[in-house]
Nucleic acid binder design. Structure first.
Length: 638
DNA sequence: CTGCGTAGCTCG
DNA sequence: GTACGAGCTACGCAGG
């Protein structure tokens, strides 16, 4: 039966539901039945937890569903159930309801089963829609309509019968989905992954809820500087066109006759440097029509780049910075003046993405990142990141003794690898004050990154391989990135793998596994699965085999790293809640977690945060190889 | 004018 | 044909 708690009642009685007079009715039912699993849902006037309002709160089991009209009734008394870690709350997209519930009552949901995330875990890598209207037919063979959802937008007066039935269905469907999904997760050995996602989604919800502040003045000052540089750059290009007879045909003979513009500022050119067609036309006067792209990769490989091309490359970079990370960013501020980004959880490898805005792609340059601040002077940023996370994962997967030793001793891995790969060539490139060959306290070489020109070239080549490894790199790709010939790249890779045979073997093992089974896993205990839907066409399309091979090499590395950060977030959230410390989660970017903490607690928290991050790392890198570095600062930083 | 795909850029 | 995983913005084209 459906029970509705509301003062606004429909005149016509219904067989589908009945009204109740007090919240005690619901509590006595819950107390009597002591359910270990209940469904929870909310209906709201929109998607924005700050400006929109919760109008309906639903809680119940398969037998009875209770609907609370939150326009008239508070939900605070449900805290004992919602925060109880022995009662599983079943929700579809828990993060959404979490934010509205927390906004309305301060209650922080705990212990959830999220049917949307469960589906994404079950179908890892398949990129299927996970809305409830998709899940119901797929798992329950039942068709549902979400049309009633929108009816809450501007709803006034009593809930309609349709709305009440819809509200109850939003409890029943997730509960039934949960019943079907649990055995599926068990059968696929994905219960650990699912539990991790369920717990992590609460941390992501906290980050979205807490938001992050922007120093608007500083941000606009930064943007102004970019705009100024942009104009300088444009003038520079125009001047070249104007003064070089070679570009005569692109000059504009009908110069603008504007009385108000000083004579020396009147331009004889009128080129839209943002439009690719005219720009290509101009550049092809230089390159005889051979140029087809204006990307920095193509322009960057041109030999003897003329000043015009150089200026254009700079122009494009600045334009991108201004358009994407200029004043438009301030449009993303919500009514509370903060940025509340939106996370998408469980992408193909297990990483998360970020949108509206994407905080993960804010330029790494701290002149941008430092604009994200904490305006309360009593609070500071405490940020922690894993040092060389993916390289540590590779070293662990391959059990490579050289890599492990280098990372353990804090040496520069790229330099150490380069020295081994190049041998004599590396030794001979040493300059007098080489940091690589500086003697340490133990009498051995320190093997730090140095400034010798020869070493820098060799190191960057090996560095490209070290990172490229994680991408299933080919000799073609390497020749591209390094600007060397394909045979040269092939030889470099061959030498590299001869030096590190265990790494070659490990990657090959993953590539073969993915091609044979059609899926690949992250490291235990996580064992997240990524399926390759295209695997069934592996015989028909020759490019697919390569794609699967590369993704199979990459996923254990990228995915295990992502799993680790999610576990760290779970541990951090748990600690903050359990010990009630003055700390808030505010951001996470792949291998980094950002919090703000009360300044009096900051130093203690710095150590604790480091410990929690490293604890999470130890679940897969058991020897403690992977360290976290934590810093206290006034603003967000790389 | 609006919608959509692509190119090119940003991050790890 | 040739590096993994993402999102955002502008351009350029198609259609009303």
């Amino acid at each position: 039966m459906i029970y509705v708690l509301t003062p606004e009642r429909n005149a016509i009685p219904s067989n589908e539901y009945q009204y109740i007079d007090s919240i005690e009715f619901i509590h006595s039912y819950l107390f009597e039945h002591q359910p270990s699993r209940i469904a929870v849902d909310t209906e709201t006037t929109g998607l924005d937890f700050i400006d929109d309002k919760m109008v309906m709160f639903q809680i119940g089991d398969l037998d009875n569903q209770f609907i609370v009209d939150t326009r008239y009734h508070k939900i605070d008394s449900f805290r004992m159930y919602l925060e109880d870690t022995d009662i599983t709350k079943v929700l579809q997209n828990a993060k959404f309801d979490y934010k509205f519930i927390k906004q309305a009552s301060g209650i922080e949901l705990d212990k959830v089963f999220d049917t949307m995330l469960a589906d994404k875990v079950i179908n890892g890598g398949k990129e299927m829609p996970s809305g409830m209207d998709e899940l119901a037919p797929r798992y329950l063979n039942e068709w549902i309509s979400k049309s009633a959802q929108k009816s809450f937008l501007k709803h006034r007066g009593p809930f309609t019968e349709e709305q009440i039935i819809y509200g109850a269905k939003d409890l029943i469907i997730p509960l039934r989905l949960c019943e079907v999904m649990i055995p599926m997760l068990k059968e696929k050995d994905l219960t650990y992954t699912a539990s991790l996602e369920f717990a992590a989604c609460l941390a992501f919800a906290d980050i979205e809820f807490n938001g992050i502040e922007v120093d608007k003045e500083l941000w606009l000052k930064r943007a102004d500087q970019t705009l100024e540089d942009l104009k300088t750059c444009e003038t520079e290009m125009n001047t070249i066109i104007e003064t070089d007879p070679f570009f005569k045909e692109f000059q504009d003979p009908d110069k603008q006759l504007d009385l108000w513009i000083p004579d020396d500022q009147i331009s004889y050119v009128n080129i839209d440097w943002n439009s690719r067609k005219p720009v290509l036309e101009i550049f092809n006067k230089i390159y005889h029509g051979e140029l087809t792209s204006l990307s920095k990769d193509v322009l960057g490989t041109l030999e003897h780049r003329p000043p015009l091309i150089r200026a254009f490359m700079k122009y494009k970079k600045l334009k991108k910075l201004y358009d994407s990370y200029g004043p438009s960013m301030l449009d993303k501020l919500k009514s509370d003046g903060k940025i509340h980004t939106h996370f998408s959880q469980v992408l193909t490898t297990g990483r998360v993405s970020n949108s509206k805005p994407n905080m993960q792609q804010i330029p790494a340059d701290n002149s941008f990142r430092n604009c994200f601040v904490c305006s309360d002077p009593d609070w500071v940023f405490v940020s922690s990141d894993y040092s060389s996370q993916e390289l540590c994962v590779i070293a662990t997967l391959a059990k490579d003794p050289v890599w492990i030793a280098a990372l353990e001793q804090g040496k520069d891995l790229h330099s150490v690898c380069a020295a081994l790969v190049f041998g004599k060539k590396w030794e001979n490139a040493a300059e007098p004050d080489c940091a690589f060959y500086k003697l340490g306290e133990d009498g051995g070489y320190e093997n730090k990154k140095c400034e010798c020109p020869g070493h820098k070239t060799l190191r960057s080549g090996v560095k490209s391989i070290n990172f490229g490894l994680a991408y299933g790199m080919s000799e073609y790709a390497l020749s591209d990135t390094l600007g060397i010939s394909v045979p040269e790249a092939r030889e470099l890779i061959e030498t590299y793998f001869k030096t590190f045979p265990s790494i070659r073997a490990t990657l090959q093992k993953f590539g073969d596994y993915g091609k044979r089974h059609g899926y690949i896993m992250t490291m235990p205990p996580f064992k997240r699965k990524r399926y390759f839907p295209k695997h069934k066409y592996i015989g028909e399309d020759s490019s697919i085999s390569g794609q699967i091979e590369r993704a199979s090499k990459n996923t254990p590395i990228q995915g295990s790293s992502a799993d680790m950060v999610k576990l760290a977030l779970v541990k951090i959230r748990k600690y903050i809640k359990r010990d009630q410390v003055p700390v808030k989660l505010v951001m996470t970017v792949h291998d980094q977690v950002d919090t703000i903490a009360h300044v009096d607690y900051a130093d203690t928290w710095r150590d604790k945060l480091t410990e929690l991050m490293e604890d999470a790392a130890k679940t897969i890198i058991t020897n403690g190889l992977l360290k976290a570095e934590t810093e206290v600062s006034r603003a967000w930083k790389k």
